[in-house]
């Protein structure tokens, strides 16, 4: 479990980035952090994996403050996928890149080799490929694979779909969905509300260094005050269902006005027609 208790953080003494943030993330959750640029989302992620220590308050990982943990201990618990895979990739072959994390943690051995082989097969990589010559989407997949191979109980994803085309985006998110179904806690920063609506079970909305809303995905995405405050546009289906009662007041109580997904909308239309 990850817990923030009244966390304050800053990069510069004069500029506060987080101002009294508190929340808990239970094991196995899929949480999306949303909000405008500068809201404090990425800082929150950096606090979760110990890259940044709080100025005040406490960040706990399984009850232990991050200030009392070594970086390598946190890395074993919390994997972090950076927005730019080129910051992460530093080896000459895909295989070496996947083994890099084990080397850093001093865990190279037959088990590690077997895990690397498994991930290479699962992701469909050529182990001898030069990572720097792969396309952007495949480099992002490799960066994700190098986190997945270490099997951390928590994976943090900082805008995992930025710069990817639709096909690459679906591939990355499918893998993340499988990870979550296997029991991994997923914490994701994302600006794409369609992705948030499709995958996240809980949404934390941040604005100006604080949490302005926190709850089940569609409760948050249907809250007009939250949407206005954090300058968010909900997924298209939610947007349509929210707009329908404005077109005709009689639709306010119709299932159409409560559809959150394409499937729910189709079912609601079928019900209306019948």
């Amino acid at each position: 479990m990850i817990e923030f208790r009244d966390v304050h953080a800053s990069y510069d003494a004069d500029i506060k980035v987080l101002d009294g943030v508190s929340f808990q993330i239970q094991d196995g959750e899929f949480v999306a952090f949303v909000g405008t640029n500068g809201a404090g989302k990425s800082t929150t992620m950096r606090l979760m994996n110990g890259l940044l220590k709080p100025d005040a308050g406490v960040v706990l990982i399984d009850g232990v403050p991050t200030t009392q943990l070594k970086t390598s201990q946190i890395a074993r618990q919390v994997g972090f996928l950076f927005q730019n895979p080129d910051s992460q990739i530093c080896s000459n072959t895909v295989r070496e890149e996947l083994l890099f994390g084990f080397k850093a943690l001093g865990e190279v051995g037959p088990d590690a080799e077997a895990r690397v082989d498994g991930v290479i097969k699962e992701f469909g990589f050529d182990p001898d490929d030069d990572p720097f010559l792969l396309n952007r989407g495949t480099r992002q997949l490799l960066a994700l694979a190098s986190i997945v191979v270490l099997a951390p109980p928590v994976v943090i994803l900082d805008e995992p779909t930025t710069g990817l085309d639709y096909k690459e985006c679906v591939k990355v998110m499918d893998i993340i969905r499988r990870l979550h179904e296997a029991g991994t806690t997923i914490v994701m920063v994302c600006h794409d509300m369609e992705v948030v609506g499709d995958f996240a079970k809980r949404v934390v909305v941040m604005s100006q260094g604080g949490v302005v809303d926190d709850g089940p995905t569609f409760d948050v995405l249907r809250n007009p005050q939250t949407l206005t405050r954090a300058s968010l546009i909900p997924p298209q289906i939610v947007d349509i269902s929210l707009a329908l009662p404005l077109v005709d007041e009689r639709l306010a109580t119709s299932p159409l006005a409560f559809a959150n997904t394409t499937d729910e909308m189709q079912a609601a239309i079928a019900q209306e027609v019948c």
Binding site: S72, A75, N84, Q88, L105, S146
Partner: peptide, 14 residues
């Protein structure tokens, strides 16, 4: 950024 990314993977620069 590169050093932070590697630190997050367990490399102990300190």
């Amino acid at each position: 950024s590169i050093m932070e990314a590697q630190t997050a993977r367990g490399v102990e620069f300190d």
